[in-house]
Design a protein around this nucleic acid. Structure first.
Lengths: 392, 392
DNA sequence: ACGAATTTGGAAGGATACTTTACGATTTTT
DNA sequence: AAAAATCGTAAAGTATCCTTCCAAATTCGT
């Protein structure tokens, strides 16, 4: 469809925004005529368009090219248990529109009703995005393990129903991905791990999860189960044997709060009700601080175990518990003692990470489609989809 | 240097052995004339050569082409603590010559003396490989973490001395890699994981280690430390806190034997001295069997933890303890209980895996060099090598 | 044994995507 | 206003692939 040079140019523009032809020539090592041909080719298809002029210090000013009117846009959705976030974005990552729906006040909270709201959110977003070219992909982030075979999706039927419904309405490929993986991807591309090549994102809230991003690509494992650290052996020692999902129970915010409350001293006032409250009291309550420090040690042990297997460049902590800066020091110390020094950071995109990662996945898929490359997406629902996940 | 078509042909021949021109044409979707040009180009350089004829059921018989006299060979070395293995191989994986030197009876066992023996082994191998074209690479497998920066190589000085010496003598790139990573690579390409896309190799002997292979490539982490599972948090529970390398101490064969011997019942004869002896007694001694079963549970917990992070398709167990088939059932059961069902196998290449993996790495590097691709090797000592690992 | 069928191998001509070279266009400096 | 610098395009050349046609080698059927 496109020539090699045109593909390279499109990739460049998607990754680094508007550029001039001479910049492209030198960056991609193509000659000026080839550059003109490539840009002309893309311009004819409306994928890129003149975006202004850039004046150098001397000489004729060059025209800058950015994504064109027919490059289209994508939608990312975070279908969480407490909120549904949606973001529309151009293929260059420019956010176009966003909505946020809280689920706290809803009485109905079944999968089916959540999916109905997803359907609605998509409608709202698309209504705002007329005249922005074709919609090229939708990614829905789910709090489940996502694999091609849909092995471990609890709400399979209602989910498939929604997918079929969405596809009927908009005829656009729909991607599914795990929410922690999405958050990891967002932190990698535009968050705490922006300048790193290999980062892992550890989410610690009510549940725990891990997202692994290597060179801009999600590492999913064979069945999409990579990062399902709630299944780690815990507790484990010469005398104690692991219980199923024992680590999630122990490190999750529910038991954390319970432990704090059970030993809470009268003089520090009423015990905290939530993790946020606990961390807010770190300054004023010595006991809160001790609880947090102890938890930091345990999180550090979890991080150390992950580091010993993966050896990442950076560990990003996120989630209601993990995102608190106060944990970093303690985690760093434990990791250094057990493994080796590793950079630790907290999320730069709290609450938004998942939806932004979903957008990123949709962009990668859409660009992959334009370039004729495989984006590596696990689950894509589109025209040729059948129960077996075989694309015809 | 080579045209695209010639590169594709060379890759094909390296990966799948001798083939005919029409086979290449259909497999690579090139036309017959292009095929002839590509093969001619490679033949002129001596990289491929006519290897015989292949008769189909009907029609003219086709000439088969294999690697030529100037394609050269590589050497892989396993520089272990008990033995030094060397294997010379063609770029198609054909083993040409092998030597094995036991270190058990040597009084001197310093790094320096081991390296001297490596030097000697190379000399012996090369003497046997005259007229086999150029030597293209040597890989030395070491029981250390190998990274570009040589951060954590204990014997740095004597190692660099040997590398410089070898390079002076043979002017060939020398690669270093961790021995467990090498073993993992061998199991992936020609061992238990031959038909799998994502396998991990868990070595359990005196020490423990993990090698991760995804789509034929080693996963090394940012500093080459991926798979250093001796640093996992262990023991770890609500009441116990981890100690440095506690898991290696607990799971290693030394403490395993100690635990067995301490409770060994008189009626089962003299207690076992080594891990091999313990496993040999599984049939006759109920207590030995109980020790083994208990160890299988613990190995299973380790595997479960690795699976929860990586979700591999297959786990290969190796090393003096790990390679015993009797462990598999117990490990499988624990992994399924804590995570999900995962295929477990034992090494198909005991004792040889490391050296064969070293050969594989050298082949990948040599072929990468011919094709102008990056083989992804971590550490390469060659002409432009300087202390900083900057290749000039 | 001999021709028909089938397959391999190669030569001629052509398409495509790039290059180099040369030159006109536009802007800033002098 | 002339010179210098940079941008953009036109023309011609080159490399690498393809398609088409034909010759050589081999098996099968008579």
């Amino acid at each position: 469809m496109l020539t090699d040079s045109a593909r390279a140019v499109l990739k460049m523009i998607v990754n680094s925004g508007p550029v001039t032809r001479p910049q492209l020539s030198s960056a991609l090592a193509f000659s000026k005529p080839t550059m003109s041909a490539a840009v002309g080719e893309l311009e004819a298809q409306g994928l890129v368009a003149s975006h202004g002029v850039s004046k150098g210090a001397l000489g004729r000013s060059a025209v800058t090219y950015g994504l064109g009117p027919r490059s289209g846009f994508v939608i990312g959705l975070d279908c969480g248990t407490t909120q549904i976030n949606a973001v529309a974005s151009g293929l260059d990552g420019q956010r176009i529109f966003e909505t946020e729906t809280s689920l706290d006040d809803r009485s109905t909270n079944s999968d089916r009703s959540r999916f109905a709201m997803v359907r609605q959110a998509v409608e709202v977003v698309i209504a705002q995005c007329q005249n922005l070219g074709p919609l090229r992909a939708i990614t829905i982030a789910l709090p489940n393990i996502v694999s091609r075979s849909m092995e471990r999706l609890g709400e399979k039927e209602s989910l498939l129903e929604m997918l079929a419904d969405l596809y009927r309405a908009y005829a656009v490929p729909i991607l599914l991905e795990n929410n922690v993986n999405c958050a990891a991807l967002a932190e990698y591309h535009e968050g705490a791990a922006k300048d790193h090549s290999f980062a892992i994102y550890l989410q610690i809230g009510v549940k725990i999860g891990l997202g692994i991003v290597v060179d801009g690509k999600l590492f999913r494992g064979f069945r999409g189960g990579a990062g399902e650290i709630s299944h780690m052996a815990f507790p484990w020692s010469q005398t104690e044997r692991p219980v199923f999902q024992g680590l999630e129970t122990y490190l999750g915010s529910v038991e954390l709060i319970e432990r704090c409350r059970s030993g809470w001293p009268m003089r520090d006032g009423a015990p905290p009700e939530t993790a946020a409250e606990l961390f807010a009291r770190a300054e004023t309550s010595q006991f809160a601080r001790a609880c947090i420090d102890r938890h930091a040690d345990d999180v550090g042990r979890l991080v150390a175990t992950c580091v010993s297997v993966l050896d990442p460049q950076l560990v990003v902590l996120g989630g209601g518990v993990g995102q608190n800066t106060i944990l970093i020091k303690g985690v760093e110390k434990v990791v250094e003692e057990l493994c080796w020094p590793v950079e630790i950071a907290v999320s730069h995109l709290p609450r938004k990470a998942t939806v932004l990662g979903a957008v990123r996945l949709a962009i990668d898929f859409a660009v992959g489609g334009l370039l004729g490359e495989d984006s590596g997406a696990v689950f894509v629902y589109d025209a040729g989809w059948s129960e077996n996940g075989i694309r015809t």
